[in-house]
Design a protein around this nucleic acid. Structure first.
Lengths: 346, 346
DNA sequence: ATGAAAGCGCTAACAG
DNA sequence: CTGTTAGCGCTTTCAT
């Protein structure tokens, strides 16, 4: 906007009879350091407030090559997981004098790439991105990230970009072992978007939990292909039509679980009586559902805080850091969606 | 961040043997208009892509006095109502070449004010704000908004700032009449933050629904003071301890309803048997709760789209618009949290 | 069909 | 203690 009348250093300088740099020094609090006379300091400050001066970040950013702005690219801000993430990131950023430009990639690589370009043009000091996850080339220029960057949630282990994520693998193991330990043997897994780290880790956990307990994995019980509600709905419908119904299902995302709930309700089937359910990714409403849903909760506020902190460190002191990943533990919240079954195979 | 090696117009100009303005014209697509020779155009374009040129928005914004950036201030991005709003706003903005700087005010006037200052410094072209709601002075400079601005959700009728909001008043009437028509006479109202437009409108609807049906309002049944979960929890606990229990409750926000649910569950009371519940503000999970909750749904995506459109219009052509409000209708979604009662007073 | 000059608002280097 | 000069990268007159 910057309408006509806006006060500038130049105007203040004119009104107070000193030079522009002097005004700049005073107004950026460097008065002391430059040993500017108290008289001048007071004068400049007075006139600045009189004129309701607001610094122009654009100009100073251009000069300083520093915008104090972070780009945040996430797949879906309306998903509570991501909005909680966004909240904690925004808060941490703000606490350190940074602002956030928000880009919603709509779970789409195309928009993700556009957002990269955009944020590069806007000269953000760093980037926090929760990748759509299947494509990774655009994250690099040459062999290094194009700007200081950290990934949250989904990540690319092969890419030398630091990341913060839940320990999905162990979370999934906890979940599925819980099922097994409750006597379940035919456990379905409704998975999310293939080739994304979260999905891979969770499905791997699903499989390894079986192995840990000396069971074989029935590949035909691993179904689904995205993190949406519809996916859970459809797959649940199909699963329940099978001759050999699973006795339990492990959903790798909360939206998937929602879909399962809807499908079961439609079919007049009940949880946990007809099917035990355990979900990855808690949701504020899970404890109010009937039954309350047993979940593997992610510490999403933690994830955001850590990601922001990591990024700011890299911005303040580039190149001194390792680029590994940080895995934040999950928590198994046992509620009432899993019932004891008779483990007829053991 | 603008690292050293970044391509600039100057560099491209040098490499292609033309002047900086010429490069600028070509790269901003004004080649034709300035009748620059095709040879030059091709040359410049080639070199620009070779050098992987990214325009510097900072510089052009400074020059143009136009940032193509919108500020978005909302009270709590982790609240699904606001995150859906944010999503539709971001999408509309992006579709029109604008980016969003996100500020979460944490339901706090102090942060809201800071965000104003911040966004002014960042020279956003316009502002969409969902006000915390109790203070409004900082929205104006003199008597007019300080930058093109539109309010969403909560608004200030007295302030000559355009706003987009759900028709809370009629929504509340629908809800409460629904209760009355189902035979309820002792209907509690758990309200949100006092002196906010949404709360005022909803409580007014609550009262007028009674009047419409020839009933008197029992002021002692209007309780509560904020939109949080805790508020619903506490007030429900107290209400259910009364000698004369209400038979139904109207909650003016979804978080409040959540709190009521928790309180009732703890007390071993069930909905709708012991208490009928109707909630303002739908939530994706409401239909999966037991019982599914009857609500007044807001069209929050609509709200966002309209707000963004309104703001962009004002930015493109200032001063030609009225500053009234737009009320978007709500929808009563009848599910199963309201039971028929015998209207013993009629 | 293109270039030279000027300036958006700010800050850093250098001078005195 | 303060001013002069210069320049960040871009776009817009105004010339030619």
């Amino acid at each position: 906007m910057a309408r006509e009348g806006d006060a500038t250093l130049k105007i203040i300088a004119a009104k107070s009879g000193v030079s522009v740099p002097t005004v700049s020094r005073v107004l950026t609090g460097k008065g002391e350091r430059y040993r500017i006379s108290q008289t001048t300091i007071d004068l400049v400050n007075r006139i600045a407030t009189e004129l309701n001066y607001t610094p122009n970040y654009l100009a100073s950013s251009l000069r300083l090559k520093r915008t104090f702005t972070l780009g945040l690219i996430i797949p879906d801000i309306s998903n509570p997981f991501f909005s909680n993430l966004a909240r904690s990131i925004e808060k941490a950023a703000r606490g350190n004098g940074y602002s956030i430009i928000l880009c919603d990639s709509e779970e789409t690589t195309k928009i993700e790439i556009e957002s990269f370009k955009l944020l590069e043009s806007r000269k953000v000091d760093g980037l926090i991105v929760s990748p759509v996850g299947q494509e990774s080339r655009h994250f690099l220029a040459g062999n290094e990230p194009r700007v200081p960057m950290v990934l949250v949630d989904r990540y690319f282990p092969e890419l030398r970009i630091p990341y913060v994520t839940s320990d999905s693998y162990h979370g999934a193991i906890d979940a599925v072992e819980h099922l097994i330990d409750n006597g379940h043997r035919r456990i379905a897994c409704i998975q999310g978007l293939h080739n994304t780290s979260s999905n891979i880790d969770r499905v791997r956990g699903y499989a390894d939990a079986h192995t840990n307990r000396g069971l074989k994995v029935d590949e035909s019980l691993i179904v689904g292909d995205n993190f949406g509600e519809e996916n859970g709905y459809i797959e649940a419908k199909i699963l329940m039509k099978r001759a050999q119904r699973p006795t339990a299902v492990f959903c790798v995302g909360n939206l998937i679980s929602l879909g399962v709930l809807r499908a079961l309700a439609e079919e007049g089937l009940s949880i946990p009586h007809d099917l035990s359910l355990i979900s990855f990714d808690d949701h504020p409403y899970f404890s109010f559902l009937s039954p309350p849903i047993t979940t593997v909760a992610q510490q999403n506020k933690e994830l955001g805080r850590i990601a922001a902190k990591l990024l700011l460190e890299r911005i303040e002191s580039p190149r001194t850091h390792e680029s590994g990943g940080i895995f934040v533990p999950t928590k198994l919240l046992v509620r009432n969606s899993v019932r004891r079954a008779n483990g007829n195979d053991l």
